[in-house]
Amino acid sequence: FFSPAADLPEEPQLQTSLYIEVGTRAPARCRVAGVFPVAGEARFNLSFWGESLNFTVTTSGDTATAQGEVRSPSPGQHQLTCTVTVGPVSRSAGQSVLVYRLPEPILEVTESRTLVNSSVTVTCRSPEADPPGVLLQLREAERVLVSSAPAPGQPHVQFQLTAGEEDNGREFTCEARPGSDIPAVKRTSARLTVLYGPRMDDSGCPREWIWKEGTEQTFSCLSRGNPAPDVVCMKDGVPVSIGVQRQVSREDAGTYHCKASNAHGSASRDVTVQVECKWPLVDPPAGDLEGGVQKC
């Protein structure tokens, strides 16, 4: 009886990430083809950083594959090694893996809630990384406000502004990337709240309304401000409902006194309502009739 000699004609092929973050896991695969006489006789030893890994083995035809996970608690360059044995024949392969530490960047705003016209400083910094050298960018949406070249230690960048109304809700993002070829990025975001008193203008509170008697209309008067102002409108000393639809009568004509208030101030505005009245079935005075209606 002739027993064929065991053989491993091909080198094992290792597959894993070239870069792994401290404390995370990544799959590691060792594959060997051409196992003779049968793939099921292949014996694997998979190790990382000198420690054996747990793994499972699958076969398909003359190919055997060991699948495990690599994880490292400390940064540095470490070796993943796979040794495959069939009978007296062994073959090994290795791959270098860089385990890195990239902490979450820190984003600081001098006053995340600030009064309008106040000076605000936004600071983006990174705790020490390994390997050292971090590229920082302070961004707003897709726009880079300020960036730094890769630097060791704890690099930082700053952006200063005078807070305006338009800056309310403005979001800043601190972005950190390793200075090397490691394809990683960490981000931290913060939103700026700008507090300011009421602002009343024609876009929110028109100074004049012209309504036709009998139609459905809504008296509207809005004010900008942060926090949102309370708006009160009075006519002849009587509060008026704002934002509520009503049927127009000639008694609605007149001047409305509106006042907006919040914790940072107040603003006032007079609004005039003119009502075009339907003329009764008598001839109106000459020149008073226009388009079938007359102003009351």
Rank of each mutant, 00 (worst) to 15 (best):
P155H: 06
R113G: 08
S72Q: 09
G225A: 09
G40W: 12
Q158L: 04
D270T: 05
E290K: 13
V273P: 02
R43V: 15
Q294S: 15
G34I: 00
E111F: 00
G291P: 08
Q15F: 08
G68H: 01
A149M: 09
A6W: 10
R101L: 14
P229M: 05
N45P: 01
D167G: 07
A64F: 11
T56F: 03
A184R: 13
R43I: 10
E208W: 09
V244H: 02
T83G: 08
A151T: 15
P127Y: 02
L46S: 05
G61S: 08
L53V: 03
D167F: 04
S118K: 14
M200V: 08
A253C: 10
C233H: 04
G94Y: 07
M200N: 15
H264N: 03
A129V: 00
Q158I: 00
S126A: 15
D201E: 14
S189R: 13
R207V: 02
S203V: 12
A176F: 04
Y256K: 11
P239M: 07
A263W: 11
P127M: 13
G237N: 08
A42W: 04
E213G: 03
S60T: 14
D288V: 12
Q137N: 02
R139H: 02
A228Y: 05
V89W: 03
E171N: 12
V38F: 13
R170V: 06
R139F: 03
E41R: 07
P27W: 15
L136N: 02
P284D: 03
L145A: 01
F48I: 02
A253R: 07
N262F: 08
T16H: 06
G169V: 01
T123M: 06
V232G: 14
S180R: 12
V271F: 05
S268K: 01
T59A: 10
V157P: 09
K212N: 15
E69Q: 13
A228F: 05
C205H: 01
E140D: 12
A64T: 01
P127W: 03
S241H: 03
D201I: 10
V232P: 09
L98A: 13
G94I: 00
N168A: 13
T59G: 03
V157H: 11
P183A: 14
T188D: 10
H257F: 10
V282K: 00
Y19E: 08
C233S: 11
F48N: 05
S223A: 15
S203D: 09
R139Q: 07
A33F: 11
D236Q: 05
G34E: 05
V38L: 06
A64R: 00
P155C: 11
M234T: 14
T110R: 08
E140R: 10
R25Y: 07
V134L: 10
V57C: 01
S241V: 04
E175P: 02
L53M: 08
G153R: 01
A66M: 11
V70P: 00
V157E: 08
R170S: 09
P198L: 04
